[in-house]
Design a protein around this nucleic acid. Sequence first.
DNA 1: TCAGTATTAAATTAAAAACTGAAATAGTTG
DNA 2: CAACTATTTCAGTTTTTAATTTAATACTGA
Lengths: 94, 94
Amino acid sequence: MEDEHVKDVAALLKTMSHPIRLKILCLLQEKEMAVGDIREEVKTTNANVSQHLSILRNQGIVSSRKDANFIYNKIEDGRVLELIAKMRDLFCEV
Amino acid sequence: MEDEHVKDVAALLKTMSHPIRLKILCLLQEKEMAVGDIREEVKTTNANVSQHLSILRNQGIVSSRKDANFIYNKIEDGRVLELIAKMRDLFCEV
DNA sequence: TCAGTATTAAATTAAAAACTGAAATAGTTG
DNA sequence: CAACTATTTCAGTTTTTAATTTAATACTGA
């Protein structure tokens, strides 16, 4: 892996390496979700979820669409979907 | 992914998410290496490499064996080998 | 044992990231 | 428009993390 890739991948991993963000990404594997739905699952404040989502958006991992006054979030980067699937496979299966 | 797994995997990713540590792990994919060899590749101080290696060892990712006054390091956790292979595949190939 | 090399450990400093609560924004509905 | 809901932004505080320096430890070979 060349240095440029190392830098980029390290940044991606860093973004994914917070428990709340990782959990959000796992939730979004299955379906798109609004901020409030996510907040219930991860049990923290709205502001906190919102901040973590904005980090995920800035990294290009998650995208959002607005419908009424809900904002629905989903995983934008297919490689991240694959990576999480692999991690599930490696660390969560028998 | 249940919360316990989320916590553990997040900790693993966090350990891997520093550019120097990620680069070390990439280097160790190929062969075991002594601290001095690693230092040349990542271009920092010995002490810095040593600190990063000790973080990798504490996480159980890397193991060491001593021979004369060299300490040779290798990746201990096969799942990490697989995970890095996947990342290479996703982010470094065409 | 002494000089040299390799590695680790501890302490300090500097920088980055996380959480909280309050205020602001945007859209909806009556 | 006023009240309400969902979400975001901001400012302040606390917590973590990173890098550097310095000192210590361990081994080798003369």
